[in-house]
Design a protein around this nucleic acid. Structure first.
Lengths: 195, 195
DNA sequence: GTCTATATCGTGATAGAC
DNA sequence: GTCTATCACGATATAGAC
């Protein structure tokens, strides 16, 4: 609000574009994750869209950041930092195949160290691994989980399983991502197959 | 051996190309999984390479099939159908980043139902999920694992974790894929963090 | 601020010489 | 059987009009 009018307006438009992009990608849509395809979807020309985001990678990274932000605000606000909040995010993912696909696609492209989205994925991985580790430590503190279990290793396992399940699910949408992750959670918390 | 000379020779050359491609991709190499890039690497022109494989997707799918075949012959022959054989394959993967990357890249592209490699990945997923399920059933039969555990669900979890760990590892090569999977195995077989 | 038009590049695939 | 040369396409990015 302290910024100049024109500049602030640009920011607002950027946000609007991201919000629209999220909706439109989520529903399904598009195959190639190209700027033109997304431009059509949000009602701008390709050049018009790149007026707000200076490159393709910046655009798509911004979309994924926005998604994280929205998911966090929606599900963590609702259920707190809990395994249930995490399951709710995953269950939601099953409703937004286009986003899942964009994430999978970009995450593979970004393994190259000099890819513009590399830092985003590294940072995100670390954040999620630590978040899972914290959940596990809480279970350990409550005496529900073996104290010998390495929380960071187990946290990495959750992250990997969540990512891998997305690819499996894209390949075969009858796969139940949440059921798999609940199983993993029950194994970690020393429960068994019962939910 | 019962085939005509010229035809058999073509087959042999195809195999040679695949073997060379495996070596050359494995070591590291190339970024874009393009035909031209691979052609340079195996010492052919792009057109020359496509003389043996009629499309890009056929070529790369053939490479991944060959990889599966070689891995199976190497590690399953050595350790039988066991968790250890599986860990050995994963440990080997950490030596061949280029192949891991090709796999990750193609598996995401192939989620589209009409992609030429779609059937390969669907079939492969099923095969691995079932193989893991069999391992778990054997543990259950031996009384090492909770009989209530759903073997197919747990098998899917292994597959997803293995896939997801590859992306994590590509992003950050200090990740120990085998350690994560051993942890999962120990959780499934009711052991804990001890190997 | 947004458009049309275009420059430039990399891709897979093909034609045709040798 | 393998090459060089080329085509057709789709991509990102940019120039410049309005």
């Amino acid at each position: 609000m302290a910024t100049r009018g024109a500049y602030a307006k640009g920011i607002v438009k950027r946000e609007q574009i991201l919000t629209t992009a999220l909706e439109v990608i989520a529903r399904n849509g598009y195959r190639h994750a190209s700027v033109r395809e997304l431009a059509d979807a949000v009602g701008l020309s390709q050049a018009g869209l790149l007026h707000y985001f200076s490159s393709k990678e910046e655009l798509f990274t911004a979309i994924l950041r926005k998604r994280d932000e929205v998911d966090f605000a929606t599900y963590v606000a609702e259920a707190g930092r809990s395994a249930e909040a995490f399951f709710a995010v995953i269950a939601h993912n099953a409703e937004v195949p286009g986003l899942v696909r964009l994430y999978a696609q970009l995450s593979v492209e970004a393994v190259e160290a000099d890819h513009p989205a590399h830092a985003y994925f590294v940072e995100r991985s670390e954040r999620f691994r630590n978040a899972f580790a914290d959940l596990i430590r809480a279970e350990q503190a409550a005496g529900h989980t073996d104290a010998e279990l390495d929380p960071v290793l187990a946290g990495g396992l959750f992250l990997a399983a969540a990512d891998g399940l997305q690819t499996q699910w894209l390949l075969d949408p009858t796969i139940d991502m949440v059921a798999h992750l609940r199983l993993l959670w029950s194994l970690v918390t020393s429960g068994r197959t019962d939910s």
